[in-house]
Amino acid sequence: MPKALEFCLPTAAKVVPDAPDWLHEVKYDGYRLRVERSGREVRLLTRNGHNWTSRFPWIVQAALKNREQQFVIDGEAVILGVDGVSDFNALHSRRHDEEVQLYAFDVLALGGEDLRPLPLSMRKSNLARLLRGRPEGMFVAPFEAGEIGPELFGAACRMGLEGLVSKRRDRRYVAGRTREWIKVKNRAHPAMSREL
């Protein structure tokens, strides 16, 4: 496994980019999580360094079902309602920990190789191959590329979603806050009141 893995953090913005070199993902309302697998050992680590491996068994089972023995995935721990929208209150309540899944949006290491220097577009391809069987408990974050970002943000707001995260498709994964990952939030979403 690569040493000193730290999360790449998006910078808050007011406008979604509309250029061809950006990828756009729905921002699910959950807990940021890194899934690290090495052989039969799986660890689920939060942004603050907490080990939540015992908290989310479905994600652990999904990681262990994968044929690949070594990987590190970056994603969001979520509980999805029947409408496909994440339910933060259900997640935070701890009453449904066995239902928590991983919304996987990046792969940082695979087969012992550090993928962070690769451009995001290549890491996305590796993530899709890694999770192509879509084991229950983990799913690949869908994304759209290019100028469609502002339209997607409008649709996300109308659907009551938290917002979008936009990422430069040609950039490496860097630790800490970066302008190459930006988040634009739906001002009407309940997550806004939790940040005040």
Score class of each variant (00 low, 15 high):
I73F: 02
L152W: 03
P142Y: 00
S38N: 11
P10R: 04
S193R: 09
R47K: 15
R67S: 08
L108C: 06
N66L: 13
M138H: 07
S121T: 13
R158D: 15
V107C: 08
L44K: 14
A104E: 10
P17K: 05
A77Q: 11
R32T: 04
C8K: 06
P20V: 01
F56C: 02
G75S: 08
T178V: 09
A145H: 11
L118T: 10
G49F: 03
L127E: 15
A77F: 07
V184C: 10
L108W: 02
D29F: 02
A77Y: 07
L91S: 06
H50M: 06
L110Q: 14
W52K: 09
E113A: 13
K65G: 14
K167Q: 06
D21G: 15
V16A: 11
V15M: 01
G84V: 07
V72H: 00
R40N: 09
R32G: 05
E6Q: 14
F105T: 05
A19Y: 05
L108V: 09
G39T: 09
G160S: 06
M159Q: 15
D114L: 04
A155H: 06
G81W: 04
E147G: 11
D114I: 10
N186A: 11
R34E: 14
E162D: 01
I148L: 04
Q61T: 13
W181I: 01
M138S: 10
E76K: 00
H24N: 12
R55P: 01
A145N: 05
D74Y: 00
R116W: 12
V35W: 05
K124Y: 02
A175S: 09
G133Q: 09
L45R: 07
E162V: 03
A104M: 02
N126T: 01
K65S: 15
F88Y: 14
E162A: 03
A191T: 11
L102R: 03
W52I: 01
A128H: 07
R187V: 09
P20N: 01
V85F: 04
L196V: 15
F153T: 05
G137P: 02
G81Y: 03
L45W: 05
Y103W: 08
G39V: 09
R32Y: 05
T46C: 03
P142M: 00
R94I: 03
V35A: 15
W52E: 03
G84H: 06
F88D: 03
G75F: 10
E147S: 11
I148D: 00
P142E: 00
E99R: 11
I148Q: 07
L127H: 04
H189Y: 11
I148F: 01
D74E: 14
V60G: 07
L80D: 07
V140A: 10
K65R: 13
N186W: 04
R132Y: 11
S86A: 14
S93F: 10
R177N: 01
I73C: 07
R47Y: 04
G84D: 02
G154T: 09
H92F: 05
V35F: 04
L108E: 12
L120H: 08
A13D: 12
R95I: 02
V107Y: 05
R116V: 09
V140K: 00
S193Y: 13
S193M: 13
A156Q: 03
L45A: 02
R168L: 15
L152T: 06
L108F: 05
G163D: 05
V15Q: 10
G154M: 06
S54T: 12
K167H: 04
F153M: 12
G133A: 13
E162N: 04
A191Y: 08
A156N: 05
G39I: 07
D106K: 00
E113P: 00
K27E: 07
